[in-house]
Amino acid sequence: MIRLFLRMAAPRLLLAVLLGFMFYLNEPVFHEHEGPVRTLADRPHPIDLAGSAANLAALTMVILLAGFLSTDRRRGYYRLTFTQPISPLRYYGTRWLLCLALSMGAAAVFMVAGQYAAWGEYLGGGQGLLLALVAAVAYGGLLAFLSAVLPFGDTWVALVVFFATFFWLNALTFGAQPFVTPVREAISLLLPPQTALRDVDDGLARGVLDWGAGTFALGYGMLWLAGAGLLVRFREWP
């Protein structure tokens, strides 16, 4: 089944590779050596790559999971698939886990291959993959739910949410106070846990793991994922 899912994901993986290359070009840490001569202390710190790796993992998750449930429901592909002796929950659960593994693979390749390409050596920063894992689970869980709920457009909604989150947090950081406090807090809670992800990132930069923030972000993704699982299990098929 894994081979089958890999074949299904192959065209999208090419898109993820392209995305990874764009992240590489856009990542300042990789291009610091292009500036004036620096001392040893100025050497780039690979843990600074964690943020980009996390964004790459999250977006790869969005690319790989786009329409993974809604398309089947809308176009009726499920009709012949689920007359085979397989549970829809297991089918979609396996696909989701495989996408998570591929997203983590994309983040790992970005960190390792990027360092070799930019600096000619691997300087470390593997713990940054923890942030990538948390981000992938958070966005992957959200997209799974959107794909289970919406008949179409789940990817676009996820992308809008992805970018809206940055806009929202920046607005709050710069002192904007849209809506009344409870609404503002509710929106912050519903949007992907970018603040928690930043806390995990900051912790990793200090060499510690912020368990509280990490658990919150993981919990956010798992909650949406559980919602998607319940819909797959109990909702009727069209």
């Binding site: 009726g76 009709r79 007359t83 397989i86």
Partner: peptide
């Protein structure tokens, strides 16, 4: 039953990737 044994099924509207 389907998840355990499967059912041979031909749908009215055949939808395959």
């Amino acid at each position: 039953y389907v998840e355990r044994h499967g059912i041979a099924y031909v749908s009215e509207l055949v939808a395959i990737h």
